[in-house]
Design a protein around this nucleic acid. Sequence first.
DNA 1: GGGATGCTTCGATTACGATCGAAGTATGAA
DNA 2: TTCATACTTCGATCGTAATCGAAGCATCCC
Lengths: 226, 226
Amino acid sequence: MKEGPDIALIGSLIGDPARANMLTALMGGRALTATELATHAGITLQTASSHLSKLEAGGLLSQRKQGRHRYYQLAEDEVGLMLENLMGFAASRGMNRHRPGPKDPALRKARVCYNHLAGDYGVRMYDSLLAEKQIEISGDDLALTSAGQSRVEALGIDYSALTKSRRPICRTCLDWSERRSHLAGSLGEALLTLFIDKGWAKREANSRAIRFTANGEKAFSELFPQ
Amino acid sequence: MKEGPDIALIGSLIGDPARANMLTALMGGRALTATELATHAGITLQTASSHLSKLEAGGLLSQRKQGRHRYYQLAEDEVGLMLENLMGFAASRGMNRHRPGPKDPALRKARVCYNHLAGDYGVRMYDSLLAEKQIEISGDDLALTSAGQSRVEALGIDYSALTKSRRPICRTCLDWSERRSHLAGSLGEALLTLFIDKGWAKREANSRAIRFTANGEKAFSELFPQ
DNA sequence: GGGATGCTTCGATTACGATCGAAGTATGAA
DNA sequence: TTCATACTTCGATCGTAATCGAAGCATCCC
């Protein structure tokens, strides 16, 4: 009867509090087991199982069996981007589940957005890359320049591996805390992995917050001057 | 218990089919009365009234009384942008309420996205403005250049009026059909209004489709060469 | 094998919200 | 004033989906 895509379906998937909790937990970027997700959502395993199959059927989650565990994660980058966008909208309306607590500043400073860096640090990195013309905007797409490519390879990232996947290498994602863009895509993921592998940053347990070490802060500032 | 904004609330608002229909109808950009929205959603006036107050409480809709009518519209640009984003996601998953009908091509060619031009024509306009450096990207924000400003004034748009509102003048919005950016913000709205005022384009009744006249197509191609 | 863990399926309960009829309020027209 | 239109509020019904207990299947460990 009506034209256009069906937003009610996705809306109702996200609209259940238990499912929303699971999705928020998965925004941490790690793949989580059904039991872990049940705990996050505060429901029993049976209920969680039912929710998870619905989310999978809706294309929001993907699943892989490993031994007797089932690991769930967001199906694609796009899911993470969409959720972050929704969070941005909700935050701008002051719809918060918790009173702004001590953890909040840490989240605003640096956090993981599905699989890449977000928050103040994410925005700083994005702006710096753009200012130094290592990424550039063409239309809606974001592209790595040749200068950017050699820079990235100098950092020890395997550029050719990035090109092999079907995912876009660079992509913008809107920040709910900063309301600015930061870098998503396979390069965004590779950079965050790099920071952690080098010991510059650590992920806090049970949180999306990322804590930079003193050395890490220094290295980051040198790599991405403001 | 969990950190971050509450996406379940918005999700559940959008998740009800009746409400989703109303929101989709309002993506047409016109303010509609409660009765009209009830018809769009296929429900009685009482039920619609209940839904509308929920949407208003959730910050998705705003309302103004005019005589004995109540006109509802999307509360802000951001609501339209968020919905378009959701539609993009839903469309990419093939979640469509209707089988692709004859109306579809018209929608893909040119349609209204809340209050500005979307579809192929929207993207072409955006790309052209960007290529001729009349708008430029800085960080996440889109800005009108001085060249763009004089160009816009030459078209007969009151630029100073645009600056007076708190809304951003330029803004990008992601297209669900083209999966590319097009121009939103008060300038996007002003341009669409201009096309219609000049008789270059007409809005189809009960649809988001925009039909360009032969003259309109010509003028549009001259204004925004590819 | 036996037992433990991780998860799914089934079935029954429950609770919430969508729905509409009926009645009430406000605005406009005659 | 009287009637009609536009909408809201109240109250009752009804359906659906979330929830969990119990049982079943799969995997791993000993």
